[in-house]
Amino acid sequence: MISFDKINKWYGSYHALCDVSAEVAKGEVVVVCGPSGSGKSTLIRTVNRLEEIQSGKIVFDGQDIHAPRLNLNHFRAGVGFVFQSFNLFPHLSVLDNIMMAPVNVLGTKRSDARAQALALLERVGLGAKANAFPGQLSGGQQQRVAIARALAMKPPAMLFDEPTSALDPEMVGEVLQVMKSLAKDGMTMICVTHEMGFAREVADRVWFMDHGKLVETGSPDSFFTSPQSPRAQKFLSDLRSH
């Protein structure tokens, strides 16, 4: 479904991504973890081209995302992205937030878009908040709306960039719940997250990144119980000592 082939990215002279190669199969859930600055967010942001790479090839759903004739907006509509800081549109109601893209990008009829939006809100547990505004919602609620907004475009895969890092502890659970149910329904997902419990429960594979390199990949069980690389071992022990 998604493949990275020798991806390289530089910020000036800083080598942010070094020869990263990996694949995500359809229906697979991948958790990307690693210390701050390891390039995890940068990596998933290259998939919908919020970050551009200098060399390498990325294929998404059979499409080379750097093909010259690619309609970028069209392509992005097919990639679901959830931000760390939710980025809901504060001047629009929850329902309008979710309907905005299907109506304006896919050309969906407003009535159809509304019905879909309401169904998605139910799915994330916020059916009652359709007419509320983002400023009136808690962080956890806002992030769930953000997930619904991304799902409204019916993407074949969803990317999550530290979806719970900006949330108060008691709200992390409700968002992870939604993500777990998405995974169970067979959505292809790449999640950058520090939530190791989520990784153990739901991920099919864990990718460990450090200093821009994809250092280790493995199943959650093998990664958490016996990480192979010394850097992964250090990362996990630092995590546990908190």
């Binding site: 701050s36 502890p169 939530e195 190791m196 419990g197 630092d238 995590l239 546990r240």
Partner: peptide, 8 residues
């Protein structure tokens, strides 16, 4: 970052 959230 929510490293304290290691849910074991």
């Amino acid at each position: 970052p929510t490293v304290a959230h290691v849910v074991t």
